[in-house]
């Protein structure tokens, strides 16, 4: 049983990890936890649903369109709203993302009502594809793990090996110096939000079959993703991924062995406890301002 628990923890954890990564990418760039992340993922998932169900597109075409859509959504948040803030203090920017979250939530409810829908992915959540004495793996489980790993690798390569990644890092370190060295910091910021939105959308599509497709579907996963990011250390990309997996593990083990009702609360309690000793998460250095 423990083996099965660990495997399902990894599956859930990799979804948390994707959401945490999405939050971390933009947080590193802008110091703003994006509260609209979940709703952006939700809208993108609805987009995939419409492409698949209403237009009957093949899966890969629908994915492609969804990725482009998610990217543009991220760009728009940055370009239309965040960039225009008169006083870009962290709190003001947070409130902008909350406003965007409410807008998207309202829009989705308005457009699609509160009916619960089912998204049809080419991998089923019930069909077991692999089984041994210790654990069983469904098609969806496997697809989740594979997609998560692919996204992580792509993001890693993007940041470590491309000119774009270098520019993103430069802007995180010192945005004015980057501007003076010819980097269009605004464009980089918008692209960063776009990439983050795509990563979030992947998580959205992967949770949709487990949950039902409705406007509030991402609330709980996003809170967990945010918590995972904080656990790992918002600014550490590998930290947030480990944070996601850890959170999945803690939650599932506690839920199985002790109480399913309190599993979220306990997960949060553990995070608060860890933050008490490591105020900037497990893998991020605590920064003390110099005078």
């Amino acid at each position: 049983m423990l083996g099965q628990l660990i495997v399902s923890s990894l599956v859930v954890g990799s979804i948390y990890a994707l959401l945490a990564l999405a939050m971390s990418i933009t947080y590193k760039a802008s110091e703003v936890p994006n509260f609209a992340q979940g709703e952006m993922a939700m809208i993108s998932t609805f987009m995939a649903f419409v492409m698949l169900s209403s237009y009957g597109l093949p899966f890969y075409a629908a994915m492609l369109i969804t990725v482009v859509f998610a990217f543009v959504l991220g760009l728009l948040l940055e370009f239309l709203f965040l960039r225009r803030a008169k006083m870009p203090t962290p709190l003001n920017l947070i409130v902008i993302t909350i406003g965007f979250q409410l807008m998207l939530y309202g829009f989705a409810g308005w457009k699609w009502g509160s009916d619960q829908r089912q998204i049809n992915l080419p991998f089923s959540e019930s069909k077991v594809i692999f089984q041994n004495d210790i654990f069983a793996l469904t098609e969806l489980n496997l697809a989740t793990l594979i997609i998560a790993v692919v996204v992580l690798v792509v993001i890693y390569l993007l940041i470590q090996r491309t000119k774009l990644g270098l520019a993103m890092k430069a802007c995180q370190q010192n945005i004015n110096a980057s501007r003076m060295n010819g980097i269009s910091a605004n464009r980089i910021m918008a692209i960063t939000f776009g990439i983050s939105s795509v990563v979030g959308a992947m998580a959205g599509i992967l949770v949709a079959p487990i949950l039902t497709l409705d406007p509030s579907m991402m609330w709980d996963p996003l809170l967990k993703g945010f918590a995972a990011a904080v656990l790992g250390g918002m600014k550490s990309l590998h930290g947030v991924v480990i944070g996601g997996l850890l959170l999945g593990l803690v939650e599932n083990l506690f839920g199985f062995y002790i109480s399913i009702e309190f599993k979220s609360v306990v997960a949060f309690a553990i995070i608060v406890l860890i933050l008490y000793f490591k105020p900037s998460g497990l893998f991020d250095k605590h920064y003390v301002r110099k005078v």
Partner: peptide, 23 residues
């Protein structure tokens, strides 16, 4: 859109007003 979901307009507008104030 959908007629059943029209009450959700309030979320949309609240969000929009919030952003306008901050901007």
């Amino acid at each position: 859109m959908t007629a059943t979901g029209v009450s959700n307009v309030s979320w949309f507008l609240t969000g929009f007003i919030l952003i306008l104030v901050v901007l």
